[in-house]
Simulated assay, not measured.
Amino acid sequence: MVRNQAHGRADELGPRLKAYEGRSAAVAGTGRDPVNAPMIRHWCEAMGDANPAYTGPDAIAPPTMLQAWTMGGLSGHTGRTEALDELLALLDAAGCTAVVATDCEQEYLRPLRPGDEVTFDAVIESVSERKTTKLGTGYFVTTRMDVRVGPELAGTHRFRILKYAPAHRPARPVAARPEVTRPEATRARRPRPVVNRDNAGFWEGAARHQLLIQRCTGCGTLRHPWLPGCNACGCPEWDTVEASGEGTVYSYVVMHHPPFPAFDPPYAVGLIQLAEGVRMVSNVVGVPYDEVRIGLPVRVEFQHYEEEGAGAAGDDPVVLPVFRVTGGEAGRGE
């Protein structure tokens, strides 16, 4: 939760930062490469997006690739001005040395096609008042990038970061790890899944220990995550199939930060390739986090998270699918 900094402390830096609003962050930048089919293919393979609109002679680029065509790589952006560097240097000098990306917004006005040469301009759109968050105290900085092909505006990309001075917290001794010294009932409340009309069936299945996958009744394509319509043929009608639960680790990350009270980092989060062909993000358990590897065989299991007072609050226990390593690697860890 973000709140304003205490009224008793004047924000002397704020007016200096506000002076950067409206200043250019990049002028007449150019994309490193034209929009091209190989990058589109790599993107679609990584995302598991088989939409036919992104292949063939009339292909367009996935709209969400908008920012990808403007990235400067290790050599940096072309057209970058000094204004953004000066702003960030001011924040660093004030102790706001940490940074976290908070969100982005994109607007698509024109499809991008292979061969299009992308140019862009960027502006420092806004700098917030000083804010205090759980991470620390700092400022939200929003930049807006206008992406063009020739004189035509193709889309806009707003990117927001928090530059902050990290809050100082005492290190938690190993003996205080939740699973070692505290009963489950006293742990911090685990965030509950966001359930809506599009994905409610998935969570209802999880409560019954069923791993359900959507299936388009028009073309038979399986899909995950759950969507209101088929991204292959556009059909809005669907049913479900129960997955076998077998899969492999397609990719993974090890989470070290932030240390949220309901979790106990480090832990492994995997992108699981199910036997049915769809991919799902979940925790990988059964081996130490540093032994998780791409290609490990896994099988789904369902973990219940009972919380003190859940019944009184009208909440059912949280049931989450996780994936346990099977075969020769299993049994060496958790």
Rank of each mutant, 00 (worst) to 15 (best):
M1R: 14
V2L: 08
N4R: 14
N4Q: 15
A6S: 12
R9K: 13
A10R: 11
G14P: 01
P15T: 04
R16P: 02
R16Y: 09
L17Q: 00
Y20N: 02
G22N: 06
A25E: 06
A26W: 01
G29K: 01
G31Y: 01
V35D: 04
H42L: 15
W43D: 03
G48L: 08
A50G: 13
D58N: 15
P63W: 00
A68H: 12
G73S: 14
L74C: 12
S75K: 08
S75F: 09
G76D: 06
H77I: 10
A83T: 07
L84H: 08
D85T: 14
L87F: 05
L87R: 06
L87I: 08
L88D: 03
A89I: 15
D92M: 10
D92W: 14
D92E: 12
A94T: 12
C96Y: 06
V99R: 14
V99A: 11
A101C: 06
A101P: 07
Q106M: 13
Y108D: 14
Y108W: 02
E117I: 10
E117A: 14
T119A: 11
A122V: 09
A122F: 01
V127P: 03
S128W: 01
R130G: 13
L135R: 09
G136C: 07
V141D: 02
T142E: 03
T142N: 05
T156R: 05
H157R: 14
H157E: 07
F159I: 05
L162D: 02
P166K: 10
P166M: 08
H168W: 14
H168A: 14
A171C: 13
A176F: 10
R177F: 07
P178V: 12
P178K: 13
V180A: 04
T181I: 08
E184N: 14
E184C: 05
E184L: 13
T186R: 11
A188M: 11
R190M: 10
P191L: 04
R192C: 07
V195Y: 05
G201Y: 04
F202R: 03
W203P: 08
L212A: 04
I213H: 03
Q214C: 11
C216T: 08
T217G: 00
G220N: 05
R223E: 06
H224T: 04
P228Q: 04
G229E: 13
P236E: 08
P236V: 12
E237T: 11
W238K: 05
W238Y: 11
D239A: 03
D239K: 05
A243Q: 02
G247F: 01
Y250K: 12
Y250A: 05
F260G: 12
D264E: 08
G277W: 05
V278W: 00
M280H: 11
V284Y: 00
V284I: 12
V285R: 00
V285C: 01
G286H: 02
P288M: 01
Y289A: 10
D290Y: 09
G295I: 03
E301R: 04
E301H: 06
G309I: 01
A312S: 11
A313G: 15
D315R: 15
D315N: 15
P317N: 09
V322E: 00
F323G: 00
R324P: 01
V325S: 00
V325R: 00
E329N: 06
E334P: 06
E334Q: 11
E334A: 13
